[in-house]
Nucleic acid binder design. Structure first.
Length: 122
DNA sequence: CGATTGACGTACG
DNA sequence: TCGTACGCCAATC
């Protein structure tokens, strides 16, 4: 499904291009699965803009509908952004609610649960 | 308009 | 194997 293509065309507005794309991809993440900032950045064609993905996530709480930001972690599978949630434990709780086990701020079986955006987009 | 920062990632020691 | 340094690109100061 070339969803990103649609996303890109629909979100070609000057503002909200990168952010919107990030949000859309994150919203595509199935329940019980996770992905990384770098993977999203790469999926958007800006592999070197992984930091921007994280930056976009910082404002993800403003996006509508809700963006499951808890399903996005760094390449190590660590919950680096947990501190940006309401509570430091909110992210882990949300992940556990999705069926993702978290141990020591790290996603268990991260590689197995890893969801590749390119797989859905490409 | 230049400098600083950041929910990352890769390279290097 | 672990810790530190740097690059990337957009937003904020």
């Amino acid at each position: 499904m070339k969803m990103l293509d649609t996303i890109r065309k629909s979100g070609n507005k000057k503002n909200a291009d990168f952010f919107e794309q990030v949000y859309n991809i994150v919203r595509l993440i199935p329940r019980g699965r996770v992905t990384s900032y770098g993977a999203i950045a790469k999926a958007l064609g800006s592999a070197k803009s992984s930091r921007m993905v994280g930056y976009a996530m910082n404002a993800s709480h403003l996006a509508q509908p809700h963006v499951p930001a808890q399903r996005v972690v760094n390449r190590k599978g660590m919950l680096t952004g947990k501190h940006h949630f309401g509570s430091p434990d909110a992210m882990q709780k949300l992940l556990e609610a999705d069926g993702v086990k978290v141990k020591d701020d790290c996603v268990v079986d991260f590689e197995k649960l890893f969801w590749d955006p390119m797989k859905e987009i490409g």
